[in-house]
Structures are given as structure tokens and as C-alpha cells.
Design a protein around this nucleic acid. Structure first.
Lengths: 176, 176
DNA sequence: CCTTGATCGTCAAAGGATTGACTACTTCGG
DNA sequence: CCGAAGTAGTCAATCCTTTGACGATCAAGG
């Protein structure tokens, strides 16, 4: 607590914030607070790293990559399924696909038995591009994961999945 | 792998995606891949929960709350320090504060020895509002954390902080 | 002193993403 | 067979945030 607030960096800010909150709002749970702050911060740093080193240089937005990634792995899909799996709105998919189609990475075709639906699929060029991009994306993921031992990595994944499948997550169904 | 892609939900998509990627790109690290996917997904669900249950109902954006939160805990601060601690650009702080000042939650004053700088501080109303909001925000954090035992919570925080302070994080210094 | 370089906050432009409305289509009950 | 209700994708409007540029200001060296 000897730091003046202006001198704090983000990590010491978390400690400082938890201390002050305990003093002012004793009803808060400092462990849950630290969990929320740290998790949010780490995820932001991860996405920023992916976006700035892998995807922006290829002219893709983070959302654009997510669409390509889902189509790459889950094969040709109707637009609404892409939205669900990528965690975005149907309107966002619609807008992103407009660009991806113009760039020759994705095709839009009619589905046989439902004239409302649109089937999205990667083109050959799209497949090649996303394969190459994910290769590099995963290299960055490995660089992050390397801070932990294999055993720690396993433990961390287990805990994150436990949170993801817990009751709080079920109550907050994001864009589903 | 018996599921057809269209039937996948997000969790089974992760399993499916990892299996397919291993087949197509053997050089990928499946553990790092699962870590990245799960961490990103969980953080998105968390922020969505906070924003939709606590902050949007109060008329605040997620960014607006982050500015108030930093000012609440780190006292009066110059604009650039708020940007750094809240993890956003100086321009974003400038824009958000315009609204917060109009709503009577934040004041902008000159700092004595530097006529360029602007000191930001919470008003009485701002202090009350953010205290009340964070109370509820932390209640949501507690609901999430309750999926884990205290020991698991401690372990998870330790692993997240290890990632946050590791070399990969140092290389990707987000917005400053 | 004064000039060069850096820093502060703001603005304009651009891109992303959400919500809500709308049209087209499908489905289901009577 | 028909009408009501629900669903798919798109568009318009709105908001948020980043980048790059700018004028104002500060700091340091000659």
C-alpha cells in the first residue's frame, strides 16, 4: 500500500484494488474478485496477442477469423450454426461473410429443403488461408502455454472447464 | 465424432475441433489449443454476464464501468493513468468521460503543474453508484467462483497469474 | 533563451458488433 | 387447405473502440 495510485501497473493495481475494496465493502469476496480481474485481464491479453501478431497482418478482424475457424473445422454450415458456434449474432455473421465472400474465402449457397437458409463453406483459398493462419495462431498459444508445466496445463484446463459447465455459466447463456 | 457438426454445442465443438485439427495439422499442440479456446470462451461468458445483469441495466457500457471502477479504487487520477489501468486507449477514456461527466458521476479538473493533463475524480453520486454496482458485480463473481472449492479457486488464481506474468505476456503488452 | 523532441488530451474517421425491425419462408394446428 | 406462430437472414440505427492526426504544453540541451 506504499505505492501511490499513479505508479501502479496492472498487477499491483489488482492487489491495491482488492485491499481497498475489502476496507470499503467488507461483504465482497476477495478471492472471487481476484479471479474475475485476473481471468478478464489474461483473456484480453491473449486476444490482443492473437489479433496483432496473426490476424490483423492478414487483413482479418478477430471476428472474421472466428467465422473462418468454425467453417474450417465444422465443415459447411448454415449461417445460424456459425453464429452459435462462434459466439456472435446472426447479423454479425451476415456482415462478416459479405467481406469474406468478396475476398473469395467463403461461398454462400442455398440449402435444399429450406429456401430461407444459407449454407456457408470455405473455398479452396479459404481453406488454405485459415490452415496457415491457425498454424501460426497455435504457435502463439503454445508460447503462452509454455509458462506452465504439462501437469499445470492439465489442471488449469480442468478448472476452466468446471467453471464453464457450472451453474453460473448455465444461467448466463451467451448469445445462444 | 458421431455428432454432425450442425448439432454441436460450444463445448462439444471444442472436442470436435481439436480432433479434426490434430488430423489435419499434426504440428498443433492440442493442449494449448484447448487452453486458448476454453479461456477465451469463459472470459466472454463472464463479461457478458456482468454486462447484461449488472451494468447495462444501470445504463453503463462495460467500458464506462471500467473507468468508474478504476477511479473508485485508485482515487483521483490523470486521464492517461486511467487508460493504462483500465486497459483502453486514451481516446476511449476521453470519450467515455464525456458521458460520465454529463451524468454527474465524474469531474474533470486541471492538475497544478501540467496544463495539458486532466485530473479525473468520482463525484459523490459517482462513488455511491459504483459502490452499489460493484456490490452486485461481486455477487455475480461469487456465483461463478462457487463452482469451485476454495482450494481449487486458489489453484486457478495461481495458474492464471503465472500465465499473466510469464514471458509470453511480457512480449504482448496490451495497450502500453 | 529557444529549439527540438516528447507527451497530454481531443477529434475525426473507420471498423465491428448488437439490437430491433422487416421480409420471406416454414411449420403446425385446426 | 389455411391461418397463426415461429424461424432465417438481412438491413438500418446505434454504440463502442481503435488508429492516426492535431494543437497545446512540457522538458532538456546547447
Amino acid at each position: 500500500m506504499t505505492d501511490r495510485p499513479a505508479d501502479l501497473d496492472y498487477l499491483s493495481f489488482v492487489d491495491y484494488a482488492i485491499g481497498k475494496t475489502q476496507a470499503e465493502l467488507p461483504a465482497t469476496d476477495p478471492v472471487a474478485m481476484r479471479l474475475g480481474l485476473t481471468l478478464h485481464r489474461l483473456a484480453g491479453a491473449l486476444v490482443y496477442d492473437w489479433e496483432s501478431t496473426v490476424h490483423r497482418p492478414r487483413g482479418w478482424s478477430w471476428g472474421g477469423f472466428r467465422v473462418l475457424f468454425v467453417l474450417w473445422l465444422a465443415g459447411p454450415l448454415e449461417s445460424r450454426h456459425v453464429a452459435r458456434l462462434a459466439g456472435m449474432s446472426r447479423a454479425a455473421v451476415s456482415a462478416l461473410v459479405k467481406t469474406l465472400e468478396r475476398d473469395g474465402l467463403v461461398t454462400r449457397t442455398q440449402v435444399p429443403h429450406d429456401r430461407r437458409a444459407v449454407q456457408l463453406a470455405l473455398t479452396e483459398a479459404g481453406h488454405t488461408a485459415v490452415t496457415d493462419a491457425y498454424q501460426e495462431h497455435n504457435t502463439r498459444e503454445q508460447a503462452w502455454a509454455a509458462s506452465l508445466t504439462p501437469s499445470e496445463q492439465h489442471t488449469l484446463i480442468g478448472l476452466l472447464e468446471k467453471l464453464t459447465t457450472g451453474p453460473a455459466a448455465a444461467a448466463a447463456q451467451r448469445l445462444a
